[in-house]
């Protein structure tokens, strides 16, 4: 299978032109999925709304292509136990 290329673009402030430019750059550079990294949760909502509020007849379905995150979303989860791990540890202790 071919490699999947994830593209990350940082947006420092909200504007439609910077969103357009980012999407254009990603698509023209054959990026398979685009991730916009924005500074705050408030801006995440704004950018998501801008992407999802496209007219129905548009030839692009951008919500399938673009993801919006903040840097804190990208913090590594190593060392944090998931529900599954926690359950198995508890079971071992009981035994």
């Amino acid at each position: 299978m071919p490699d999947m290329r994830l593209g990350f673009i940082c947006l420092t402030e909200f504007s439609n032109s910077s969103i357009n430019e980012g999407i254009a750059r990603a698509m023209l550079n054959l990026i398979d999925k685009l991730v916009f990294v924005v500074p705050s949760e408030a801006m995440t909502g704004k950018v998501k709304d801008a992407i999802e509020s496209m007219p129905d007849k548009s030839i692009l379905q951008l919500r399938k292509y673009v993801t919006v995150v903040t840097p804190s979303t990208l913090v590594s989860k190593s060392g944090i136990k998931g529900v599954h791990d926690r359950k198995s540890t508890q079971t071992e202790e009981v035994v």
Partner: peptide, 17 residues
């Protein structure tokens, strides 16, 4: 190129054919 790309995608995102 930046300006051309941006304008073209502005139209695409606006639902233009």
């Amino acid at each position: 190129l930046r300006k051309i790309e941006e304008a073209a995608f502005r139209g695409i995102r606006s639902g233009l054919d």
